[in-house]
Design a protein around this nucleic acid. Structure first.
Lengths: 235, 235
DNA sequence: TAGTGGTCTAGACCACCTG
DNA sequence: AGGTGGTCTAGACCACTAC
């Protein structure tokens, strides 16, 4: 007979929830008791329950014990691809183009989004990413030069600012906000679509240790763009 | 002096990556060696490195060791809220409305998305979710009656199908695909917006043990809807 | 085939929180 | 105040795989 693994314990608890033997709000037996039932060490049960808690299936509190949660809102995982990888995955050649570059005081919404005081100037870039003969993404980006002073000297003609920033500032916190909007005349022209056509907009802000690095507005033609996410069951 | 925690080890490795002492592609020292350096048990180092691997910071392979990964595409977390919670969080009263209900053979794209054979009939629901006086979401849903036969008898007049399904089929796998589209005339009328206005579309498919449960097309007025995701740094 | 990660055990101490 | 989870240790065996 083989030893019981933490995966066995995990699967057993999940099966009890699936079958209805354990319902939302119920208390799961304590670690010591489960270890006895499964004939394993307490650490083994601990790891199983800890992973279930990370997956959002149960909630654990000292003294109160482990309780089954409501299955309502679950976190989903979504891979945020790099533009280049996203395009090359489709088999189309990738091309990057720098449309404009200047150092200027950002408009108020951008300034507040970056947490800058009025009057401060920042690096403003406008870029276009091509998938073959089609525009895949139009990028409007502001970079906080207080946090990334080296960006002032960087040349963004050959490579996009995203790749550059990832190299310069690894392990930062990123926030994405997605929405659907109708393209303005200027946006439509740069995206090679009709004015008023739906565009998929990603607003991305990046922070490191509480300081805002950059804010990007990424626009995709709505007819082609798709963004996928999945919620995986534990185990 | 206190014992060294797995969090200490994790933080130390992360700091080495941030500072550039460990670069993408580099090999992290083995568990045994790190345990010696930190003066702790090997399991402690193991847990630190395991969590870094789960966060996508490093990659681990037996015999090959632990290597620092490129920081390029990182997984993001996104909370998929229930419509009701999403609306009530804004302070607006939530109202649900069933517009249509019938059992019919689904159109081909839906049928294939659900993995059904031609001719099979499924439950088709059209619903509307209100936030105060504004339409928040228009829902077009197909339910696979082979997998959820009890849905045939369920009354979806008082409560939406999503809440019902979550109760009936916990711990299922969910896939979301987001896009931006221009509203058709009918969609615009039901959403109380202008035809051609941008709408934020979520296509949601749910599976349990490899079998498709349901497929929903959720439409939001683009002017109001926002969807947020964040990539958190490990630790 | 040897080195590296993956996991289990048994025992211990501690932190937190509820009753 | 005591029960429950959180974590560390020291030692062991196993699984995988690069060399």
């Amino acid at each position: 007979m083989s030893r019981t693994s933490y995966l066995d314990v995990k699967a057993a608890i999940l099966e009890q929830i699936r079958s209805g033997a354990l319902r939302p709000g119920d208390t799961v037996p304590g670690e010591e008791r489960l270890a006895g039932e499964f004939g394993c060490a307490r650490v083994t049960v601990n790891r199983a329950l800890r992973e279930l808690a990370e997956a959002g299936v149960v909630e654990r509190r000292r003294k109160a014990g482990t309780r089954v949660l409501d299955p309502t809102p679950r976190d989903a995982e979504m891979e945020i691809p790099s533009v280049r990888a996203e395009i090359e995955a489709t088999g189309n050649p990738y091309r990057y183009e720098l449309l404009a570059r200047q150092i200027a005081p950002p408009p108020r919404p951008v300034r507040e989004g970056l947490g800058l005081i009025p009057g401060i100037r920042a690096l403003h870039l406008t870029c276009r990413h091509w998938a073959g003969a089609c525009v895949h993404q139009l990028e409007d980006r502001w970079i906080n030069l207080d946090v990334v002073p080296t960006a002032r000297a960087a040349d963004f003609r050959a490579h996009g600012p995203n790749d550059w920033l990832i190299q310069a500032m690894p392990l930062s916190r990123v926030e994405h906000v997605f929405s659907a909007q109708n393209a303005t005349g200027e946006e439509a022209e740069l995206l090679q679509i009709e004015p008023g056509a739906a565009i998929f907009v990603t607003e991305r802000r990046t922070w490191i240790e509480g300081r805002a690095i950059t804010r990007a507005r990424l626009m995709h033609p709505g007819a082609t763009h798709r963004l996928a996410a999945r919620t995986l069951p534990p185990i």
